[in-house]
Amino acid sequence: MFQGQRGWFCGSVGGELRQFWVAEGGSISDPRAADFLFSCDASHPDTLRIYQSLDYIEDNATVFHAYYLSAVANAEVKNSVALGHFILPPACLQKEIRRKLGNFIWEQDQHFQIEKHDEV
């Protein structure tokens, strides 16, 4: 699914989501070279650095919540998950957005965990 794609992961992203990315053919890269920027916490210093970067200001860097990857992992058709639903806006904007729109998609669903079939 992610063959040839480079991903950057904020320190807030759990190991199993990174492993899934790599297992699906993605590689890990630094934020400047990455095709995808993943984070689980908009106020983590790693992610804050992205929000303050020129790339971000110039609309060249959208941060996505890494739960996109678990949604992909759990979807029956892997490329049917809309990446656009997983935009992670800066923490200072989230309150206002939540007031207008309700909870974010990654807050609505508690099932964003990669199922481990070998564990019972």
């Binding site: 095709d35 920027l37 060249n60 860097a61 490329n79 809309a82 656009g84």
Partner: peptide
């Protein structure tokens, strides 16, 4: 909302 698949990423989404 409708765009899915490989072509989208952090660079072009905005």
């Amino acid at each position: 909302c409708i765009a899915v698949g490989k072509s989208l990423n952090s660079r072009n989404f905005s």
